[in-house]
């Protein structure tokens, strides 16, 4: 059966039974939205992990009232280490200003500057191991001018375990969505078959092949999957654009990275996959309820 004829017949059938298909597409959109949201979260967690792994960082917090000479001596030591690429001295005032800017909270700038500890922000060379980073931190921590050293290793470890958990959850969610889509499409097609029994009987009496009978239903299933996944991705993108301005600075302040949308190739795969899963659900229903 030519695809053009199948599409034309499916379009007519969907127009005639619009309500059924709208309900099905709405249900599927919710399922795909959950999956897309999980993929979005995973994308951003991975981006954060990648960014942190790429930029080895260390914050050396200076003790209150640290002498300038002690700080200079500390700086001299750090500059002598081959792993250290860059050092930035952040004063209490600068730390307060940076925090106020990143969080866009004017109240922070009114707080006393000594609430924000001064620090030396150290950028390590790429490839610095966690063990070497710990040795440097231990050595630096012995200085009188140093109150504490943050290597972010614990954060990074937690993030890695969070990403691993997230991947498992996203995988389980994908499976759940797959089953959900198959179930919804199969039932919608079953209802469509029941509503078009007469039409199918007439087609078969006229000598329609199984392919001719099956074609429009497969197209309907594929369209349901395709449209619902496309709508889900579009809704998520709209929500991302709308909310990004509000939360991006907070995320940047907390995690040091900006939020990103799911990669276009993943979005396309989700939409195309939605269509394929829809067609599969339809085929399963046809095999079971129509015997073709």
């Amino acid at each position: 059966m030519p695809l053009k004829t199948a599409i034309a017949r499916a379009a007519r059938a969907m127009r005639e039974d619009l309500r059924l298909h709208v309900v099905a597409i709405s249900s599927l959109t919710v399922a795909f939205l959950c999956l897309a949201a999980a993929l979005f979260t995973m994308t951003n967690l991975s981006s954060m992990a990648e960014s942190w792994a790429r930029q080895g960082r260390m914050s050396v917090y200076l003790a209150e009232g640290a002498q300038t000479e002690d700080v200079a001596q500390l700086r001299l030591l750090l500059e002598g280490l081959p792993e250290v690429r860059e050092i930035e001295h952040v004063t209490s005032r600068a730390a307060r200003a940076q925090m106020a800017t990143e969080s866009e909270d004017a109240e922070l700038s009114r707080l006393p500057a000594d609430l924000f500890p001064a620090s030396l922000e150290v950028t390590l060379a790429g490839g610095t191991t966690a063990a070497r980073s710990a040795v440097i931190a231990e050595r630096v921590g012995r200085f009188r001018a140093v109150e504490g050293v943050e290597t972010y290793e614990a954060w990074f470890g937690q993030l890695e375990s969070l990403i691993t958990t997230g991947r498992v959850v996203a995988g389980a969610l994908a499976l759940l969505v797959l089953l959900c889509v198959l179930f919804v499409v199969a039932n919608t097609i079953r209802l469509a078959i029941a509503g078009r029994r007469d039409e199918i009987e007439v087609l078969k009496l006229c000598g329609a092949s199984d392919g001719f009978v099956r074609g429009p239903f497969l197209v309907e299933g594929a369209v349901q999957g395709f449209l619902s996944s496309a709508i889900a991705v579009s809704l998520l993108f709209a929500a991302f654009v709308a909310v990004r301005g509000e939360v991006d600075s907070t995320i940047a302040a907390l995690a040091g990275v900006r939020s990103v949308f799911i990669h276009p190739s993943i979005a396309v795969a989700l939409v195309v996959g939605g269509g394929l899963v829809g067609a599969t659900g339809s085929a399963l229903s046809l095999r079971r309820y129509l015997g073709v």
Partner: peptide, 17 residues
């Protein structure tokens, strides 16, 4: 289906859509 394409069948209940 090829057999049925060589036949025309008409029923009491018309079987039209």
């Amino acid at each position: 289906p090829y057999l049925r394409r060589n036949l025309g069948v008409v029923f009491q209940d018309f079987k039209i859509i």
